[in-house]
Amino acid sequence: VKVFRALYTFEPRTPDELYFEEGDIIYITDMSDTNWWKGTSKGRTGLIPSNYVAEQ
């Protein structure tokens, strides 16, 4: 598990995607895809765009 911080707010387009706000901490559990990672924030899990976060 790696810890990342959201650089921007992300509004999901599908139920599989995770909503998060700029500054949120996201725990990444799967980075197997280059563009979409699986992450958890505020008790919810979903896909996030990798270019919206920076490693802490």
Rank of each mutant, 00 (worst) to 15 (best):
Val1Pro: 12
Val1Leu: 13
Val1Gly: 13
Val1Tyr: 14
Val1Ile: 13
Lys2Trp: 12
Lys2Ile: 08
Lys2Arg: 15
Lys2Ser: 09
Lys2Asp: 04
Lys2Asn: 07
Lys2Gln: 09
Val3His: 07
Phe4Met: 12
Phe4Leu: 05
Arg5Trp: 10
Arg5Leu: 13
Ala6Ser: 03
Ala6Trp: 03
Tyr8Glu: 07
Tyr8Leu: 10
Tyr8Met: 13
Thr9Ile: 04
Thr9Cys: 09
Thr9Leu: 07
Thr9Val: 04
Phe10Asp: 00
Phe10Pro: 01
Phe10Glu: 00
Glu11Asn: 14
Glu11Pro: 03
Glu11Phe: 15
Pro12Ile: 05
Pro12Ala: 10
Pro12Glu: 02
Arg13Gly: 10
Arg13Lys: 12
Arg13Asn: 13
Arg13Gln: 13
Thr14His: 14
Thr14Pro: 01
Asp16His: 12
Asp16Tyr: 13
Asp16Leu: 13
Asp16Gln: 12
Glu17Met: 12
Glu17Leu: 08
Glu17Tyr: 12
Glu17Val: 04
Glu17Asp: 09
Leu18Val: 05
Leu18Lys: 01
Leu18Pro: 01
Leu18Glu: 00
Leu18Ile: 07
Leu18Trp: 01
Tyr19Pro: 13
Tyr19Cys: 09
Tyr19Thr: 06
Phe20Glu: 00
Phe20Met: 09
Phe20Ile: 11
Phe20Gln: 00
Glu21Leu: 09
Glu21Asn: 08
Glu21Lys: 10
Glu22Pro: 06
Gly23Cys: 06
Gly23Ser: 03
Gly23Asn: 07
Asp24Trp: 14
Asp24Arg: 00
Asp24Ile: 04
Asp24Gly: 02
Asp24Gln: 08
Asp24Leu: 03
Ile26Cys: 02
Ile26Val: 08
Tyr27Trp: 10
Ile28Cys: 01
Thr29His: 14
Thr29Cys: 13
Thr29Val: 11
Thr29Asp: 09
Thr29Phe: 15
Asp30Leu: 04
Asp30Asn: 06
Asp30Thr: 03
Met31Arg: 08
Ser32Leu: 10
Ser32Phe: 07
Asp33Lys: 06
Thr34Gln: 14
Asn35Pro: 06
Asn35Thr: 13
Asn35Lys: 14
Asn35Gln: 14
Asn35Trp: 13
Trp36Met: 08
Trp37Leu: 05
Lys38Asp: 03
Lys38Ser: 10
Lys38Asn: 07
Lys38Cys: 15
Gly39Phe: 02
Gly39Thr: 01
Gly39Asp: 01
Gly39Arg: 01
Thr40Cys: 15
Thr40Arg: 10
Thr40Trp: 14
Ser41Ala: 12
Ser41Thr: 14
Ser41Glu: 02
Gly43Thr: 04
Gly43Tyr: 03
Gly43Ile: 01
Arg44Cys: 07
Arg44Trp: 05
Arg44Gln: 09
Arg44Met: 11
Thr45Ala: 11
Gly46Thr: 00
Gly46Pro: 00
Gly46Phe: 02
Leu47Ile: 09
Leu47Met: 13
Ile48Tyr: 01
Ile48Lys: 00
Ile48Arg: 03
Ile48Glu: 01
Pro49Glu: 03
Ser50Lys: 10
Ser50His: 07
Asn51Asp: 12
Asn51Val: 08
Asn51Arg: 11
Asn51Gly: 12
Asn51Pro: 05
Tyr52Met: 12
Val53Pro: 02
Val53Leu: 14
Val53Glu: 03
Val53Ser: 00
Ala54Asp: 08
Glu55Ala: 13
Glu55His: 09
Glu55Ser: 09
Glu55Ile: 14
Glu55Cys: 10
Gln56Ala: 15
Gln56Ser: 14
